[in-house]
Design a protein around this nucleic acid. Structure first.
Lengths: 111, 111
DNA sequence: TCGTTGGTACGACGACCACCGTACCAAATA
DNA sequence: TATTTGGTACGGTGGTCGTCGTACCAACGA
C-alpha cells in the first residue's frame, strides 16, 4: 500500500468546536506551542513529551484531523507544521490568542 | 444549609486548557455566544437549547468552574454573565477570537 | 544482512463526558 | 395552602478520551 496519504480537512471545513477541543489537551497544547516556536517543520519525536509513541501518534492525529497541523511524510519520518494561514483565515486571532495564553513550553530549543 | 455559594475560580487560577475545553462543546459555545450578545446577565432558561434542565445545569456548571461565566443567584433564578474582564486579562484576545469564530447563534435578537 | 529508528495499527482499560429521568427544593403567585 | 417556576442532586447509560503495550512496517546505517 502506498500512501492513504494523511487526510487533512480543507480550510472551509474547519470547525471551531473541533479546533478548540484539539487544543484543550495539555500535551497537544505543548505540541502546538513547540511547533509555533520552531519555524521549520519538525518530526513527531523530540517534543520531550513523557508519553509513549502510540500516544504521540494519537495526539498528532487529533491535531491533524482538527486541521490544526499539517503532516507531510518524509522518508521514514514526518514533518509537522502549524496550519497558520488556514487557521488565521477561518478563525482570526484564535491561534495567536491561544499561543500567547499557553504556558511557556520550556523551549527545549537546546543550545 | 445556606449557600455553598457557587464556586468561581479566581482570575489567576484560570487555565487555558480548561477554558478551551469548556468552549469546545457546541451547546456551551452557543450559551457563551448568547451571553456575549445580551449585555445584561440572563437566567439559564430561555437559551433555546434543546436539552433538558439537568443537562443545562451541567453545562452552566462546566462553564462556571472553568471561569468562563459567573453565576449569581437572584431569588429563585440565576443570573449568568460572561467573565469578560478576567478572561481578557488572563488570555488577551481569546474570547473575542472564539466569539467571532463561533457560528452565529440565530441571534434571536432578530433585526 | 542485521539492527536501529520513526512511526502506525490494534486492542484494552479506566476515566470522563453529554445526556437523560426522577426526585427534590425554594421563591413567588394564586 | 396549593401550584407553578427555575434550578439542583443523584443515579445511570452509552460513548468518547487519554494512555498504554504489543506487534508490525519501512527506511536507513553498519
Amino acid at each position: 500500500m502506498v500512501a492513504m496519504s494523511l487526510h487533512h480537512p480543507s480550510r472551509e471545513d474547519l470547525e471551531v468546536a473541533t479546533v478548540l477541543h484539539a487544543l484543550s489537551d495539555p500535551q497537544r497544547l505543548r505540541i502546538v506551542t513547540r511547533l509555533a516556536g520552531a519555524e521549520e517543520p519538525c518530526s513527531c519525536g523530540g517534543f520531550g513529551l513523557e508519553v509513549t509513541k502510540s500516544t504521540l501518534t494519537h495526539h498528532f492525529r487529533v491535531l491533524r484531523e482538527a486541521g490544526v497541523i499539517a503532516q507531510r511524510p518524509v522518508g521514514t519520518s514526518k514533518f509537522n507544521s502549524l496550519r497558520r494561514e488556514d487557521l488565521d483565515a477561518r478563525f482570526p486571532g484564535l491561534l495567536d490568542a491561544v499561543l500567547s495564553a499557553a504556558p511557556a513550553p520550556v523551549t527545549s530549543a537546546a543550545p
